[in-house]
């Protein structure tokens, strides 16, 4: 408590480089997994890619745009799911949020209805669309979060820990759905996770980030043991 009172009168400010020395390109249609310890810079990178953060130095281009300029055409081309932040309105059925998103992304009514039908079938959420979001399980809610993020058919989908807190069955379902969606639509996906099974089952390529820098960049299929590789990379000196 003393520290809190002291900080109230004299706040201590320190600067930390969340991301430094991160240099890579992602090909269209690729599914890339970001792995790193807590605070490694994974979410910071995703926020920069979505245009939420301005990099203090360096350059970032996504789909030919500078993300933080927040060009409406860029915003229409990306979708983002944050495992710990919901985009759905909690007290009303998800269908109402989806209708709103259709209006925000200027999706014509007929196109919206057809797209929702397809997504509801693919993600198996038809029966949940009319239920208040707060009454759904975490797994059901996450499926709807992904539906909300891809409703406008983004070219790039950013998934920040999409399976966090889910049980084994729900995790497996979400992974399968993301994989199927990538195959069906060819959407580029960047996924951050602490769960190696997410990476192994969904991603083509693995990036390991440590203290904001890229420490490994390679194909998932060429790695014999993801867990060993990650542990080894994160424990080796910078």
């Amino acid at each position: 408590m003393a520290a809190a009172v002291k900080a109230f009168f004299r706040p201590k400010v320190s600067t930390k480089w969340a991301v430094a020395g991160l240099d890579f390109q992602v090909a269209a249609g690729q599914v890339v997994g970001l792995v790193g310890a807590n605070g490694a810079g994974k979410t910071t990178f995703l926020k920069m890619a979505a245009g939420l953060l301005h990099p203090t130095e360096g350059e970032i281009r996504v789909l030919g745009h500078v993300p933080h300029e927040r060009d409406p055409n860029f915003l229409r081309s990306i979708g983002m799911v944050m495992g710990q932040k919901s985009q759905l309105w909690i007290d009303i059925p998800a269908s109402e949020t989806l209708e709103l998103l259709a209006a925000v992304y200027d999706i014509p009514s007929e196109v919206y209805r057809k797209r929702l039908d397809d997504l509801a079938r693919l993600f198996d959420v038809k029966e949940h669309l009319g239920v208040q979001v707060r009454r759904l399980s975490l797994g059901e809610r996450m499926k709807l979060e992904i539906v909300a993020a891809v409703l406008h058919e983004p070219r790039l989908l950013l998934l920040d820990e999409p399976t966090i807190g889910l049980d084994v069955v729900a995790k497996d379902r979400i992974r399968g759905l993301v994989r199927d969606y990538n195959v069906e639509k060819g959407t580029t996906i960047v996924l951050s996770s602490h769960d190696m099974d997410d990476i192994a089952e969904v991603c083509h390529r693995l990036l390991i980030i440590h203290h904001g820098a890229l420490r490994f960049d390679g194909s998932v299929s060429e790695v014999a043991s993801l867990k060993s590789l990650v542990l080894e990379t994160l424990s080796s000196p910078a």
């Binding site: 979505a50 245009g51 939420l52 915003l75 990306i78 983002m80 944050m82 932040k85 998103l101 925000v104």
Partner: peptide, 9 residues
């Protein structure tokens, strides 16, 4: 939490 609004056009 506000970031859900910021990523929309």
């Amino acid at each position: 939490n506000f970031r859900r609004f910021l990523i929309q056009p």
